[in-house]
Nucleic acid binder design. Sequence first.
DNA 1: GCCAAAGTGGAATGTCGCGTCCGTTTTCCA
DNA 2: TGGAAAACGGACGCGACATTCCACTTTGGC
Lengths: 199, 199
Amino acid sequence: MVNGRRERKDAQRNLERVLQAAHELFAERGSDVTMEEVARRAGVGVGTIYRRFPSKEHLWAAVSHAACMDAQQCLYQATAQQHDPVGKLRALIMVQYRRSEEQSALLDMRPEAASESCANSSDQQQLYAALHAMLQEVIVEGQRRGTIRQGAPDVLAALCLELLNPRTFLHLRHIVGGSAEDCAEHAVQFVVAALSARG
Amino acid sequence: MVNGRRERKDAQRNLERVLQAAHELFAERGSDVTMEEVARRAGVGVGTIYRRFPSKEHLWAAVSHAACMDAQQCLYQATAQQHDPVGKLRALIMVQYRRSEEQSALLDMRPEAASESCANSSDQQQLYAALHAMLQEVIVEGQRRGTIRQGAPDVLAALCLELLNPRTFLHLRHIVGGSAEDCAEHAVQFVVAALSARG
DNA sequence: GCCAAAGTGGAATGTCGCGTCCGTTTTCCA
DNA sequence: TGGAAAACGGACGCGACATTCCACTTTGGC
């Protein structure tokens, strides 16, 4: 579409293939994937990738950005449909765990390790922050209603957040052996118990 | 000491220096440390390291082994001095968090990712397993006494375990801003609430 | 103090993955 | 259909590391 000329459709198709391939590989194995692997899976040459993305980090950022925006969107929607804090908590855990099943490496984020090359994009950190904020909001609301015990909301949210990490899901999955939903249910029980106001 | 001849004392000294340097660097930054960095910090040449350890993985394994054995020892001792489940839980968290302060990268283990080159040694997995077993034992005992709620002990232990990971500590530390003990106390409150039998 | 064995350091080598370059192929417009 | 422009792909260059090699140094036994 540049300079009055339509974008060539092979170029368009290849961009899609590259993004698709990169998404699949990154989601599964994180950023320690070779550019050549991505190219091979996409059925193109490495040069084609570099035409669109100046570096591996840029490709990672693009894939990560899309995945994180999507995840954030899903999390917002899921909580919006719930009206009590416990329901919102359950929704967050369910959604996060279901996504972890397919995209553990892409969603795995460690906010404290901000500088490790492209393994952690700022989008992941933003997703983490958004999730932390959502949890905190739920906790504050629960405290207002008296269903969630007192205590610094940011700290409680941080502890819950650890249990929402894809790694936790994988670990749990390994032990429980059941579906993502089964695992999520265990985590929900645990978190709810940890947060509930004492009887 | 081989072949009737004493081990040269420069060799012995250098081995100690290498292990010390490797421990410091690995503890801080994990296995993405250059052999040359280790050599430099130890004040030796890389050749000297390779004389003792056939590969970087072997060096990592040696350092990791020592750290994990030591950690396991500390955890056992700490729980042995406590006589009720909650006390044992508190002790485990306190000890683990204090160690995390210095050795987060060495103790950080992800049992589900067993094959990622040398970043995860089998010792780390064993430490993880031991910690999981200790938690499980504490939980079973608490359930017997009626102070800990019912539920699959392995699953409950797995969820607690996530909160004992050095990453969790670092994240919490960042938010709380206090000492390792402060962070541990928050985690203890959370875990105890999550596990307590309902009133 | 002498010397053979043990140990040392760091330059050289091999491997691997990122990113570039350019001859070839495809597409689009007229 | 012809040809210019855009896109392609994969061989190649390069830097970063792990590991090897060997001329040189230190040590322990005599």
